[in-house]
Amino acid sequence: MPKSRRHDMKRPRGLGKLIAVALALAAGLAQAQPGGAIRLLVGFPAGGAPDAVARVFAEHLRLASGANVVVENRAGATGKLAIDAVLAAPAGGLTLMVMPSSSLLLTPMVLKSANYDAVRDFSAVSALAEYGFGMALGPAAQGATLADFSAWAKSHPDKANYATPGLGTPQHFLGAELARQIGAPLTHVPYRGGGNAVTDVLGGQVAALITTEQLLVPYQAQGKLRAVLVTSPQRNAKLPGVPTARESGLPQLEAVDWFGLFARAGTPAERLAEWQTRADAVLASPGYRKAIADMGYALPAQPTAGLERRLERERGIWSERMRVSGFKATE
């Protein structure tokens, strides 16, 4: 049995020193802005996954440093409204953004109106949490494994389809890659958000669902959906019986996304360094680690190191997945 992901809940060494440094840095930043407020922009509605992670981070930043942190939702256009707001804000390190890295990378690829460069125009401060994607079958599909679904899809091409939260999303391109790899004509059924996609798969209107791993957990436990694949390198601890893409013979589908803390380019280097120290302190705190684990996410092994290289690498991967899918950018 492959090892499941585990979240180390032990108190990291040097935590007290990190928090003390973060407290001093927070005081300096707060003095630099009238009212002392630090703004974290989220490009998605309140209650969604990016919002939840942003609010957990903000709360533990307050606890660790005493900083006045305000989370603002700028929902719309797959995160573009928040992206534009951060780019328009002063580069003083007081307005940042919490965003899935895939959304930051894919938006300028799929929307012609998003005329920014994800690596050139932003500085990645920290990865806050990581997650993979998963595929599950609903009552309209037959079988309980990916092999079963593949065989069924080939013999029922008129019924073989999959639901995602929308066009141009990671789930869309992973589904297109899956269809290419198994040689089955899977029809993409995009929705405006994941909630409606889940509803129609549960109701039998669509055969399969591709979403984030943690959203599959309750439906798998209740027997309402049959999870057949996760894209993380390791099995999900809350879905221990579900194989990874690599275990299923599909390493091309391996994918890990992450919620990142981003500042606009031009933010002074000393401010970025301060933010990274503060983020390290929050991510080392037992309360934050437990909250993230309880939400079903993994903690990044290196939250602040090598993020620019990681973004460059992942941009190439998503760009290639988009290319082979045949999807073209829209207005």
Rank of each mutant, 00 (worst) to 15 (best):
K3H: 11
H7I: 13
H7C: 07
D8H: 12
R11C: 09
P12W: 13
A20T: 14
V21T: 14
A24I: 11
G28C: 05
A30Y: 02
Q33V: 13
Q33Y: 00
G36W: 02
A37H: 10
V42W: 12
G43K: 11
G47H: 07
A49V: 11
D51P: 00
A52H: 07
A54T: 07
F57M: 10
E59W: 04
H60P: 00
S65E: 09
G66R: 03
N68Y: 01
V71C: 01
E72C: 03
G76T: 10
T78Y: 07
G79N: 03
G79W: 01
L81N: 14
L81V: 08
D84F: 05
A88L: 07
A91V: 03
G92T: 06
T95K: 02
V98Q: 14
S101K: 11
S103C: 02
L105M: 13
T107M: 04
K112V: 00
S113G: 08
A114N: 09
A118C: 04
S126P: 01
S126Y: 05
L128W: 09
A129Q: 09
A129Y: 01
Y131I: 04
Y131Q: 01
G132D: 12
G132W: 01
G134W: 02
M135H: 03
A141F: 07
A141V: 08
A147K: 13
D148E: 10
A151L: 13
W152F: 07
A153Y: 08
S155R: 14
D158F: 03
K159A: 15
A163S: 11
L167P: 00
P170V: 14
F173M: 11
G175L: 08
G183R: 05
H188Q: 08
H188L: 15
H188D: 11
V189D: 06
G193H: 06
G194A: 15
G194N: 13
N196V: 01
N196S: 12
A197Y: 04
A208L: 03
T212R: 12
T212Y: 07
Q214C: 00
Q214V: 06
L215R: 15
V217R: 07
Y219T: 06
Q220A: 15
G223N: 10
K224Q: 15
K224P: 02
A227N: 06
S232L: 07
R235C: 04
V242Q: 10
E247F: 08
S248W: 03
G249C: 12
L250R: 04
L250F: 14
P251Y: 11
A255C: 00
D257Y: 00
W258K: 09
G260C: 10
L261E: 06
G266L: 06
G266V: 06
T267A: 05
A269E: 12
A269D: 10
L272R: 05
R278G: 00
P286Q: 07
G287V: 06
Y288N: 08
K290E: 14
M295A: 15
M295W: 02
G296K: 11
Y297W: 08
Y297I: 13
P300T: 10
A301C: 05
Q302E: 14
A305R: 15
L311F: 14
R313N: 13
E314R: 09
E314N: 12
R315D: 09
G316I: 06
S319R: 13
M322C: 06
S325G: 08
G326T: 09
A329F: 04
A329P: 06
